[in-house]
Write a protein that binds this DNA or RNA. Structure first.
Lengths: 141, 141
DNA sequence: CTGTATCCTCTGAGATACTG
DNA sequence: CAGTATCTCAGAGGATACAG
């Protein structure tokens, strides 16, 4: 965009951070992705998302509903039935999230490799070898 | 590789979640965005990111460095100087993150509105009016 | 079946002080 | 300047039991 000096708090970064705080939790993205193909029932989701607790599923769904990303339909039958579905807003979120997913899939290898190298450097520290090899400020990625 | 029946853990969702766990914290995205234009020094970043503590800046930078998103250059001068810079991998992450940023900017209004409506419905609960208006399963976004 | 209500644990994160 | 070391606390999240 412009070459103006950004203030990292007042610009769009603020909003990105807010969105990330919302969907960056442990389960939100998983739920949004799961609802991509259509509505799902509560226990159905609980079964499909391996490891989520009833409590967290409820809380996460409430949060998504409050933000207008998910809608909730109650069928007053016995036994009760509740369907959750993505709103148009929720669907629109899938696109940037999937872009991130593409990036993740494409780069998990590179990340794992970087981590391995980093950990290796950490392990062999103290052998008299500086991180940059003893020379001045060599970049280490 | 575990082949569950369309488990949302075994697909790419796993990776998305992992990436989100890394960059979904309070400061990582802010830092990545700040390093977009070039290298920055430690205290420079601390000043620019309003509210971050020294500790969290260090920890976040270490995490990003470990993942290969940021590189760290030490100049053994007095006083010491350390520059942080995005790696190519780090730069590539900016694109999906900015896509998310675009979405955030475009939809903060809608989200705030949804939240207001949701909270309003919560406040006026118990007036005998069911969420769906008394009929069967009207969707509420 | 779809939730609430407690309790409990563990981590994220700030404040502060100290070091090379 | 660029960190590390503690202390502390709030909140996220799991387990379990109960309710409509």
């Amino acid at each position: 965009m412009t070459e103006a000096h950004h203030d990292f708090q007042s610009e769009g970064c603020r909003e990105v951070s807010r969105v990330l705080a919302r969907i960056g939790d442990k389960w939100s993205v998983l739920i949004v992705m799961m609802l991509a193909d259509g509505p799902r029932r509560f226990n159905e989701m609980k079964r499909l998302i391996n490891g989520i607790s009833q409590r967290m599923l409820t809380l996460t769904l409430r949060g998504l509903e409050r933000d207008g990303l998910v809608s909730r339909a109650v069928y007053p039958t016995i036994p009760p039935r509740v369907d959750y579905e993505l709103t148009p807003l929720g669907h629109s979120l899938r696109e940037p999230v999937m872009a991130l997913g593409q990036w993740a899939l494409a780069n998990t290898g590179a990340i794992a490799q970087a981590q391995a190298q980093f950990d290796k450097r950490c392990t062999e520290e103290g052998k008299g070898a500086m991180r940059n090899g003893g020379l001045s400020a060599e970049r280490v990625a």
